[in-house]
């Protein structure tokens, strides 16, 4: 049996990498202030958006859907939120401070303890097996959040048990996507950021994955920010935005 503790217990107690900035905040707060991507500036200024060039505060613990047609900067937004791109004007504030004000090690601590991500391009190590890809993320934390059995259990729920020992190179996109989903769920987090997480999955597998994600978020009292092209009813969303 797996014991799942509320996520903030973890972020308080155990991590040495985690800075002390978060001690007084029970929830990681993400805010956008007049955020505009430099490459899309002209395009964005011509139309209205719920996100770009506005004041946005994402509700902690809430399920947020951002609907975004192609070319509106969906993936760009995810990269800004996760701080792997910075070619924007305006600000992304995390607990009231810009990403830049955190040290590399503090950001790494947040990525291990407070915010998890599923990229559209999946980003799986090809020199590792599927299981090793998940394991890498699980044991990155000195005290892993979930057990190896729990990983197997999640793999079974997403129908990828049979590919666990296959090299990352030989996985299909659908399999990679499910491995990436499991990888994102083995760590503690308060926010899960997802970029078209079901794009390579059939309807049945998408439903299974959505159910698992919702459960894991509830177990952590965590919220998510999901970007996708169309409307969907896979989750009970608290907030909808149009990009």
């Amino acid at each position: 049996m797996t014991v799942i503790l509320p996520s903030w217990t973890f972020s308080f107690g155990k991590s040495s990498i985690l800075g002390h900035h978060f001690k007084n905040t029970s929830y990681m707060q993400i805010q956008l202030e007049n955020l505009v991507p430099v490459p899309l500036r002209d395009k964005i200024m011509q139309r209205s958006s719920d996100i770009w060039n506005r004041q946005v505060t994402f509700t902690p613990g809430g399920f947020t859907k951002i609907k975004a047609p192609s070319g509106t900067g969906k993936t760009t937004l995810v990269h800004y939120l996760y701080h792997i791109r910075t070619d924007y004007t305006g600000q992304v504030l995390v607990n009231g401070k810009t990403w830049d004000s955190y040290s590399r090690d503090a950001i790494a601590g947040m990525r291990q303890e407070q915010v998890s991500v599923i990229f559209q391009d999946l980003r799986v190590f090809e020199q590792l097996t599927a299981l090793e890809n998940i394991e890498l993320k699980r044991v990155m934390n000195a005290a892993p959040y979930c057990t190896a059995e729990k990983v197997k259990e999640m793999a079974a729920r997403l129908n990828v048990t049979h590919v666990l020992n296959q090299s990352g190179k030989t996985l299909s996109y659908g399999e990679r996507q499910r491995i990436a989903i499991i990888r994102a769920l083995v760590q503690p987090f308060q926010w899960l950021i997802m970029d078209e997480p079901f794009s390579h999955l059939d309807e049945e597998n998408a439903q299974r994955a959505a159910l698992l994600i919702a459960e894991e978020c509830k177990a952590r009292n965590a919220g998510f920010i999901l970007t996708d092209l169309d409307n969907d009813n896979r989750f009970v969303y608290d907030t909808h935005y149009n990009l």
Binding site: I17, Y82, I84, R104, D105, A108, G109, M110, R111, Q112, R123, F125, L136, K137, M140, R183, Q187
Partner: peptide, 15 residues
């Protein structure tokens, strides 16, 4: 590339 992905996934430079 590998190191960049590791850091993206949350590996601390210290690690």
């Amino acid at each position: 590339k590998e190191i960049q992905l590791l850091v993206t996934l949350g590996t601390a430079p210290r690690q």
